[in-house]
């Protein structure tokens, strides 16, 4: 049966990118432990609303860990303490009565703050637009079984393709690097035969767009891998670097 706990919450409040921002403290009682973390925040917001205050803004939608909308720092960890878990799939049974929990937004130059815990991640779309696709117009495709893809290559591509674009890798990196995200996108397509014709150009454009959009260089500290809710391996960064280097050598003018 579900138990209830009381919590102290310290939440970052910021009215927009130009506001300085500050922490605000809240007490929340009678939280059932079978709630998800976001349902706990819904409860807090209802309490704030009834008291005439301004509810805390956080991004969310599917609450099944797949749309990638949610995400913020909980006690300094992206998506909180559970491995391989988005905030929406984190449950309050992992907390004790009387715990103090600190919530902060993703902090990165490339992710300006919309409000409170919600940030603008359109820089990820910009990276995707820089070649994160296979140029095939609808109607051109050959029969799906005409190009066999080995199970291992297909699995490797899939393991990169599971990225939900949440930004935890950026938020957890001391350089705010988007290498895990960009590496996953590059590796997904580079592993498939249909992705090879554009691989060199794709690697160059995506890596350079990542740098242009204000993401830092890879810090080599592996924090991104630990924070990734889909547990994407940092091997994708090594592969990205290899693709990029090879592309620069073979396509020096791109």
């Amino acid at each position: 049966m579900s138990q209830t706990i009381s919590l102290k919450l310290r939440v970052w409040r910021q009215n927009g990118p130009d506001d300085a921002g500050r922490f605000e403290n809240f007490d929340l009682a009678d939280v059932p432990t079978d709630l998800s973390f976001l349902e706990m925040l819904d409860m807090l917001n209802e309490q704030i609303l009834q008291a005439g205050g301004d509810p805390i803004v956080f991004d969310h939608d599917c609450r099944e860990g797949i749309c990638g909308s949610c995400g913020f720092m909980i006690d300094g960890q992206a998506h909180g303490p559970e491995r391989g878990t988005t905030v929406c799939q984190l449950h309050m049974r992992h907390y004790q009565n009387g715990d103090t929990v600190v919530l902060e937004p993703w902090r990165a130059t490339a992710f300006p703050i919309f409000k409170d815990l919600m940030v603008d991640r359109s820089a990820f779309d910009a990276i995707q637009q820089a070649g994160g696709y296979i140029s095939v117009n609808c109607g051109n495709a050959p029969d799906a079984n005409s190009v066999p893809v080995g199970k291992e290559e297909a699995s490797d591509a899939f393991e990169s393709a599971v990225c939900v674009g949440c930004g935890a890798c950026v938020a957890s990196c001391k350089n705010a690097s988007a290498s895990l995200f960009t590496g996953a996108k590059i590796n997904h397509l580079a592993n498939l035969p249909q992705g090879r014709p554009e691989a060199a150009r794709r690697a160059i454009r995506m890596v350079e767009t990542m740098e242009d959009r204000g993401f830092g260089a890879c810090s080599n500290t592996l924090e991104c891998e630990a924070a990734c809710p889909k547990e994407i391996s940092i091997k994708v960064i090594q592969k990205m670097n290899r693709e990029y280097l090879f592309a620069k050598l073979t396509h020096p003018t791109d």
């Binding site: 051109n140 893809v149 498939l192």
Partner: peptide, 15 residues
């Protein structure tokens, strides 16, 4: 169309 775009569907060992 999806395969041509790079959608990584499940596959058999034969590809």
């Amino acid at each position: 169309q999806a395969v041509a775009q790079g959608v990584p569907f499940a596959r058999e060992y034969g590809g």
